[in-house]
Simulated assay, not measured.
Amino acid sequence: MGVRPVLFRRRTRRLPLPSPLGTVLAEARSLSVRLGGRTVLDGVGLGVAAGEVLALVGPNGAGKSTLLAALAHDLPAASGEVLIDGGPAASWSAAELALRRAVLPQSAELSFPFPVEEVVRMGRAPWAGTAAEGEDDEAVREAMAAAEVTGFASRPFAALSGGERARVALARVLAQRTPLLLLDEPTAALDLRHQELVLRICRERAADGAAVVVVLHDLGLAAAYADRVAVLHGGRVAAEGPPARVLEAELLTRVYLQPVEVIDHPRTGEPLVIPWRAGRNFAS
């Protein structure tokens, strides 16, 4: 059979242990990040705990994706620190990080014509050589079913539409089965049905004990599905807390530079954010 690749040899890694609900699994402490000589995050303090969905919202350039990447330890801190699973992010090896957090970037591109199932199976690579290796087939099957991509398991990833690729990328992250999920605009390329599907998955993973951080532009989705919302503005956290408290008209109008009104949904009571419009007779 030959020698197995180094990636799949048994190796010494500190495996994640189950965390009680409420345990902080990722935290930024006085975190600042500089990119291209510019301060993109400035003294941010924010954490996410097992069992909750935290939505990061804010205008373009506010620092949402940068904060997500910093929480994943994919970007270095200029000052402050990031903790993952109770320890400094830098104290974990790359393999150990991959067992603790799964990251969904804004776009998913592959240079080789891998079939969908193989792309999803890539999410299982961190578990090679561990006791959980035997769960690979089950994890891949469940992740594909959750993301509704089972029907095109054998199709080349490159042949899919943008929305289908986004769901396959999500399935890869789900198959990784980490206690921390970091999702960057997972609904951007999706239709209405699949936007709702993705956020329901986030809620289900949180109910199972995961900590989920999701970058969203749709404030309605944030209000409906997040336990907490952090509004970023100018590289800082302008407000953070339950959606009903944070998503208020004065703050959002100031942050987005767009007048809005916030009303309670007549059935659920969730806040609905509506851009203020003078009338329906818009100039053409």
Rank of each mutant, 00 (worst) to 15 (best):
D85Q: 02
E138G: 14
F157I: 15
E164I: 03
R124W: 04
E133D: 06
V120T: 02
P76V: 14
A77H: 05
P76R: 15
S154D: 14
L71A: 02
H73N: 12
W92Y: 07
L97W: 01
A77W: 05
W92T: 04
G134I: 07
E148L: 06
R165T: 13
A94K: 08
T150W: 03
L75N: 08
P126C: 10
F112W: 14
L160H: 03
A159T: 15
D85V: 05
P113R: 12
M144T: 08
V120F: 03
G162V: 10
L83G: 06
I84E: 00
A125N: 10
S111D: 14
A132D: 11
A102T: 12
R121E: 02
A146K: 12
A89M: 12
W92N: 04
A72W: 10
P156Q: 09
P156V: 14
G151K: 09
A145C: 02
A78T: 07
D85T: 01
D85H: 05
P115E: 07
A72E: 05
A131V: 05
V120E: 01
V120S: 02
L71R: 06
R100P: 01
G151C: 06
L97S: 03
S79Q: 12
P156K: 10
A95C: 01
R167H: 07
L104S: 07
E118D: 10
G86Q: 05
G87F: 08
S154A: 15
M122V: 03
V116M: 09
G162F: 08
L104E: 05
A139P: 03
E164R: 13
D74N: 12
A153M: 05
A143G: 10
V116Q: 06
E96V: 01
A159V: 12
E138D: 13
A108T: 13
G86N: 06
E96R: 00
P115K: 11
L71M: 10
A72V: 09
M122C: 03
G86W: 03
V149A: 04
E109V: 14
G129F: 11
G123E: 04
A139H: 10
S161R: 12
A158R: 15
F157K: 11
